[in-house]
Design a protein around this nucleic acid. Structure first.
Length: 412
RNA sequence: GUGAAUGUAGCGCAAUUGGUUAGAGCUUCGGAUUGUGGUUCCGGCGGUUGAGGGUUCAAGUCCCUUCAUUCACCCCA
């Protein structure tokens, strides 16, 4: 019988790494709080229909990447491939934006997509998510981008690039779409096979094709900015002005077409040069039609998703700080075998006073205990008679103290 | 889903190109020395060479299958 291993594309975040994840999540929680975003917990799975309708039938995610199964009640269920649709569903279901109110929400957790794993890409991967619902104006877009940049700044990430685009709305996108199709039809013979496929289903994505021949054709394709309606033009201008007022530099990329169908107007990505081919650490944009697609009433929104796995890879490569590696404050060393019971009692009492304490519970030698104690700040020696000595490891000072005195000393 | 590379102690690696009982290092455990730890020295544990099949007198090494990892394509966080 072979031993069972983790499924492809999943992995364990082991203790030697998990503290880094806690650090990033804690930093995110602080940042979100400073921006007035409230944490929300939503299910890891939803009705398949939510993603099919919300994310879009023609998106790659829905077409080939979802973990979908039928539950025992015959319902079609899907492990969430992204968070926005679920947050939107929850906001509608719980009337978070009733009576013209808005909601600023954040969340984090695992997402699931059936893809071939590679650097910075897993089948179960983690995202930090922020969504601002109920606000039509570009101030919300600006705040969302500001928030993502501030988060990365606090994490110490360097060499990031903001890439910006507008993909229009339900009024102007069809017009642009038609122009595009007409243009590409003239060059049908030169397009690659996948792009030919996109021509009918999702022509905007041809702009995103990285093949050289398609790229050349796209270079002369109609410009989306010529097709934007006045509202979208204004929105995009307000966004750019706002970002400049905050001192951000960004790049416009007309080729930036988010893979999820629900995006309208603003689309943005934050890229890092320190990843491989999967260089986006954060992606987001505005989705004013998602609520209706999910069967609700009109509710505009803008948000981002930040790839935790990728952020941590970049932070490691850039030598960023992950805070202190957690270690107990004090190690209770049994002087001999007869003192072992006492070491457990003392440890128990220290913990009851909220002092992080450990003792050896594996029968190790005195020397081994001393060695293990080396990553603590203090050592407490115990003998069979229950007498205690406290040693400060950094300066080597050691003195006889009662348990109460030790607790008093460590609480400072 | 496609392509390429890789898979040997817990970890990172070696094994004279097919040849005897698969080796050191780090880690771990024990001992000695050091003031009772972080240095040094000695010793122990640790392996069905990813799995299955084949070729051969002989396979870690060659062939096939399979699983997995890594990187890239596609796409995305």
């Amino acid at each position: 019988m072979s031993t069972i291993i983790a499924p492809r594309g999943t992995r364990d975040i082991l203790p030697c790494e998990s503290y880094k994840w806690s650090y990033v999540i804690n930093t995110a929680a602080e940042t979100m709080n400073d921006f007035g975003f409230n944490e929300i917990f939503i299910p890891l799975f939803e009705h398949t229909e939510l993603f099919a309708r919300g994310v879009g039938e023609t998106s790659d995610i829905v077409e080939k990447e979802m973990y979908t199964f039928t539950d025992r009640g015959g319902r079609s269920i899907t492990l969430r491939p992204e968070a926005t649709a679920g947050v939107m569903r929850s906001a509608l279901e719980n009337n978070l934006c009733a009576q013209g109110n808005f909601a600023k929400l954040w969340s984090y957790g695992p997402m699931f997509r059936y893809e071939r794993p590679q650097k910075g890409r897993y089948r179960q991967f983690y995202q930090i998510d922020a969504e601002c619902l109920g606000i039509q104006g570009a101030e919300a877009d600006i705040e969302i981008i500001d928030l993502s940049i501030e988060l990365f700044k606090r994490l110490g990430l360097k060499n990031l690039e903001i890439v910006l685009n507008s993909v229009g709305c339900e009024k102007c996108r069809p017009v642009y779409r038609e122009k595009l199709v007409n243009y590409f039809k003239q060059h049908e013979s030169e397009l690659c096979e996948t792009c030919l496929n996109r021509l009918d289903r999702n022509p905007l994505r041809i702009l995103d094709c990285k093949k050289e021949q398609c790229g050349k054709i796209s270079d002369n394709a109609p410009d989306i900015y010529d097709s934007l309606c006045d509202e979208c033009k204004d929105h995009f201008k307000n966004l750019r002005d706002g970002l400049e007022r905050l001192g951000f530099t960004y790049k416009i990329n007309k080729r930036l077409v988010r893979g999820l169908d629900y995006y309208t107007k603003t689309a943005f990505e934050i890229l890092s040069g320190d990843l491989g081919a999967q260089n986006a650490v954060c992606g987001g944009g505005r989705y004013d039609n998602l609520a209706e697609a999910a069967g609700g009433s009109h509710l505009p929104g803008v948000g981002f998703a930040c790839g935790l796995d990728r952020v941590i890879i970049v932070m490691e490569e850039q030598g960023c700080n992950f805070g202190e590696i957690p270690a107990p404050k004090i190690y209770v060393v049994a002087r001999d075998d007869e003192a072992r019971a006492n070491s457990q009692i003392i440890t128990h009492k220290l913990r009851a006073n909220k002092i992080a304490a450990v003792n050896d519970i594996s029968g190790r030698s005195f020397k081994a205990q001393m060695k293990a104690a080396n990553n603590c700040k203090y050592i407490c020696f115990v003998n069979a008679a229950g007498e205690l000595e406290l040693k400060n490891i950094s300066d080597g000072v050691q003195k006889n103290l009662s348990l109460d005195e030790i607790i008093e000393c460590l609480k400072k």
